[in-house]
Amino acid sequence: MKYIISLSLLTFFLSSAMIQKNTITKPQPSVYQPDSGKIIYETYCLACHQEDGSGVPNMNPPLIKTDWVLGDSTRLINVILKGLKNTEINGDSYSNEMPSHDFLTDYQIAEVLTYVRKSFGNQAGPISSEDVKKQRAKK
């Protein structure tokens, strides 16, 4: 019975949500700036790498203190621009593929990577739009 109620509530909710498209509801972070790295992360990365950056076992790698996140910034920028596939991350392999996110602007990529480098226990320097621009030009 409870199931039926929640199901119908859900259907109601879904259909009303369908009518007013564009209502992208997200867990509201306590403090954020519009268009900040955190918002970009939630929109494009969270599904695979999870809210706490811990990833999904065997499927999507964690973004917690990996060489890729903390290490060479050009390599990191290239993961976002070009994607990544069939690469071992800290000794484990992952079945999914990291899609290219080159549709994001230089600024958005810089913001999201800076956010990743400063979250989930990571402490590494920021990435600038200039850095991203340089890498994109090399393609």
Binding site: L14, A17, K21, I24, T43
Partner: peptide
Amino acid sequence: QLTTLFPEMYNAEQSAE
């Protein structure tokens, strides 16, 4: 990933369901 690929058509809850 209905919402990450088509955010203008599916919101996050719809994509979850």
